[in-house]
């Protein structure tokens, strides 16, 4: 089966972002960008399915500025077969991304799309569920285990009270949680090989999708800062301060 994995280019998870002085957004000038960590997990899972002989081809898709091609290269170096870049300078929100993915799914006919459960920049946690809705497919979100058997799929999901297992009819959408797998590092030979793998380049217009944002960002601000606290010298002092000063115990 064919698998599509959407990979988003985001500010690296180690970067402490700064809000722009004019409150228009986040300052990304010169900031390290990486593949969304949940999407690395998605690629890894797809590659493992290919290694098991279940997947035949893995297509990595990224949508956004031209540099998203680098994110696709990373996916190719991890084992994806080819890439599709949907190039746009617009603010692509999950509804628009899901609509474009729907068109690609109709063109490519995969049986499975594996997405991250959440992009760590917009923290929306929406795109996979939206794509499933638009396609009328089943969804297995926040997956920590995935098993393909015949025309079905069993997904163990991380839910609030523990774990839940669901059985899904293929074709299906899966979104990855942290404990699904540990993504590999691309080896040097694979990075070299990835350079020769093809990346198709398209624009939202080629897919016939209107990507006008439905959410207008009015302003972006720093959250309230916590005041610097105090060090206590002993457990006894801690307990006494929690009682008499903070009055929380």
């Amino acid at each position: 089966m064919k698998i599509i994995v959407p990979v988003k280019r985001v500010v690296d998870y180690n970067v402490k972002v700064r809000v722009k002085a004019d409150s228009s957004g986040i300052d990304t000038a010169g900031v390290k960008m990486s593949m969304n960590p949940f999407d690395e997990i998605a690629i890894e899972e797809a590659v493992r399915l290919k290694e098991k002989g279940i997947a035949s081809e893995i297509i990595a898709v990224s949508m956004g500025v031209a540099q998203c091609a680098e994110t696709i290269r990373t996916a190719l170096a991890m084992g994806a077969d080819r890439g599709i870049l949907i190039e746009s300078d617009a603010d692509l929100q999950p509804l628009a991304v899901a609509k474009m993915l729907k068109v690609l799914v109709e063109q490519e006919n995969p049986q499975l799309v594996i997405l991250g459960k959440q992009a760590i920049d917009d923290d929306m946690s929406a795109t996979g569920q939206m794509l499933a809705a638009l396609l009328g497919w089943s969804q297995g979100t926040f997956a920590s285990k995935l098993n393909i058997e015949g025309d079905g799929l069993t997904v163990t999901r991380e839910v609030d009270g523990g774990l839940e297992t669901v059985s899904l009819r293929l074709p299906s959408i899966v979104t990855t949680d942290l404990r699904l797998n540990e993504p590999r590092y691309a080896s040097l030979p694979n990075i070299m090989k990835a350079r020769k793998k093809p990346i198709a380049n398209m624009k939202p217009g080629d897919l016939g999708v209107d990507v006008t944002p439905r959410l207008t960002v009015i302003k972006v601000e720093e959250p309230p800062k916590r005041k610097a606290g105090q060090k206590v010298g002993s457990v006894a002092e801690l307990v006494s301060k929690l009682r008499t000063e903070a009055k929380v115990i």
Partner: peptide, 30 residues
């Protein structure tokens, strides 16, 4: 377009939500 994880309601169209792990608060109007 869903408005995920709001932390405040400004008015019927406008909401505040954390982005970047809560390192910024975005006010968005739907």
């Amino acid at each position: 377009q869903p408005i995920s994880d709001i932390a405040a309601v400004v008015d019927a169209d406008t909401f505040v939500r954390p982005i970047y792990a809560g390192n910024a608060m975005a006010t968005v109007k739907s």
